[in-house]
Amino acid sequence: MKIPSLKIDNLIAKVPVVQGGMGVGISLSSLAGAVAKNGGIGVLSGVEIGFDEPDYFSNKKEANIRALKKHIRKAKALSNGGIIGINLMTVLNDFEELVKESIKEKIDIIFSGAGLPINLPKFTKGSNTKIAPIVSSSKAAKIICKKWDKKYNVIPDAIVVEGPDAGGHLGFKKENLQDQDFSLINIIKDVLETIKPFEEKYNKPIPIIAGGGIDNGKDIGDILMAGASGVQIGTRFIATDECDASDKFKENLLQCKSEDIVIINSPVGMIGRAISNDFLDAVSSNTKRPIGCISNCLKPCIPTQAPYCIAEALINAQKGYMENGFAFAGAKAYKVDKIIPVKTLMDNLMTETKSYLDNKY
């Protein structure tokens, strides 16, 4: 069986894999460019993307915009004509500015979650940039489709559905994570039903890209058979030569065991999935104390009440200073056992998927 391409309007990815946007600084131009070059959709993370600029702490907004432009251009150059996207969370304080600058740089697609990107079409109107909200429920998908339809006369070009096994911040309550009613497959089916009226009204398909805990070809095959048009994979791309994280960050992933994957309470009021370490142990035992805000990055964060600065912790981790930071990761992170080139990973995943689907049909 031939694995179908992922079509998002006029964009066609030969490999139906979207590399998840991972911040701070885990998926930048090196990783995104390599994924796009090999037929998938490479995605930059826009979260504090200027963290490595020399004037980041004194001139944060300008540093982020400068780095955004730099990484989009570099990723496009590396991609050999492939598809480059960017993940911009709606809770970013500079969300609108980063969206506008991404469009100016002719980014192919903007993925946006961590809230409902209700006004996103206002910025992309008249451009060739596609827009894809990230949701964790059919309810959220319906709200976005209704709002965009009514206010802007558009619908999403694609929708990313993130399930409860994803890494990073999760759009679920802690008690729902093990509830089968909230499984990724069930959410996909609900979203597919929810979007039908909008697809019919606009005579346009809304491809579903599903992610969260996808580790191998069987996982991909099951997602495609459930009706999704593609998959989003984050954690497995950390363990690649081209990933923008430090070697120590990657080694931290390779060394983790199943019991090390934990649910944490983020300073921004959401739960998240991460790899446990001494830093997070100190946080959970209340031995960390508010130390101020280095970046004013997220709207929901109240620095005076936060036990630590999440931007600082993630920047430290990206650079390998794990004693002062931590790594987000998906539920199956413990299965990753070696670092390989992006091309090898994508080839392996597609070979596994084809074999699995061939046996199914």
Rank of each mutant, 00 (worst) to 15 (best):
P133L: 06
I12Y: 00
F198A: 14
N93R: 15
I8A: 04
A32D: 04
S127P: 10
G33P: 11
F328T: 08
G33L: 05
K196P: 07
V24W: 00
E101V: 15
L349T: 06
Q255I: 05
V154G: 08
G82C: 01
S183G: 10
I118Q: 07
P300I: 02
Y334W: 04
A114Q: 03
K354D: 04
D247F: 02
E312R: 15
I134E: 06
A210E: 03
N277E: 05
A67N: 09
E62T: 12
N64M: 04
V17L: 14
K174T: 04
T351S: 13
P207S: 03
F279Q: 08
F326V: 10
A274T: 13
M346W: 01
L116R: 11
G234S: 13
M350R: 10
I109C: 09
V154D: 04
I291A: 14
G320N: 03
V35Q: 03
V17D: 03
E259W: 01
S183T: 08
D94Q: 12
R289H: 05
K74C: 02
G163I: 05
G325R: 11
I208Q: 11
W148V: 10
Y361C: 05
I49A: 05
A311K: 06
F237G: 14
G269I: 08
Q180L: 09
A306M: 03
I187T: 15
I206K: 07
D337N: 15
P267Q: 02
I263H: 07
S29W: 00
L11F: 01
V262H: 03
P117L: 04
G171Y: 01
R236T: 09
A166K: 12
V135M: 05
I72S: 05
D94F: 01
I315W: 00
K218H: 03
T353E: 04
E200L: 14
I155A: 06
S284H: 08
A311M: 07
N119I: 05
M1Y: 00
D94A: 11
K61G: 02
Y202C: 13
L254V: 12
R236A: 12
D52H: 06
G269L: 08
V283H: 04
I271L: 07
G272P: 11
P4A: 07
E101N: 13
